[in-house]
Amino acid sequence: MNDPERLLDKSSDDFERALLRSARSDGPSLQGKQRALAALGLSAALLSGSTASVAAPSAVSTVVSWMAVGALVGTGTFTAVSALSPEPPRPALSAVPVAQPPRVLPQTPPALPAAPPSASASPPRDLPSAAPLAAMGLPPPSVAKPPPPTPASAPPVATVAPPRVSQETPAGEDPLLLELRLLDEARGALTRGDLATAGRLVTQHRERFPRGKLGLEAEVLAIELLSRQGNRGEAQRRAEAFVQGHPTSPHAPRLRALFGF
């Protein structure tokens, strides 16, 4: 097939050419790509090319998963990768040190009211967002439920890393990657059923990044956390507000499915 010459090359009309040239800057942002990778539970660290070089310091952490089960993949990835690439201490954020058991705070974050212990041990409803990763051969969402109380004699779950909170804000590190790491760790804590840590991390995110680029993802995480804490009414109220404010967000269908509105 002989292709005709393109209008931009052949047109003698400056107006036409200006209109066609104006589309040259079309396209998504780098942040959009990183957010999509996070939403799909794909660690930026595992990417090749420019994205990987940007993301390298933070991406050794667990895989961010807005799909409820992505963190399960991340657990293994984190365990393996962090063994190879130990991170330096991160003094800027409050911390639960690596290789120590989760530190459960006595109080929950102010905006995320605590739920009765029974509620936190039993989420009211499985998150319906596991389908994409399930279709990719990853574990089913039931694995992401909080673990039942472990008897004293039971061996520890070897593959689940303790919650790890970033403690440093290296000068010049991309704030987006810091956000990503914080929410990544919050997601991991939520997946493990460590609701107190997840709540603390979500609050940290809100305080450190009040206008963060991942604010929507943080809000979705907070809504899920509320739901898992048994505060379904407040979770639903915020979910409805979220969907009303962001009807075209990719999170909207998931929240609608989760809360049935």
Partner: peptide, 9 residues
Amino acid sequence: VDDACQQVF
């Protein structure tokens, strides 16, 4: 566009 991209993938 970013959100729509995410939706596509």
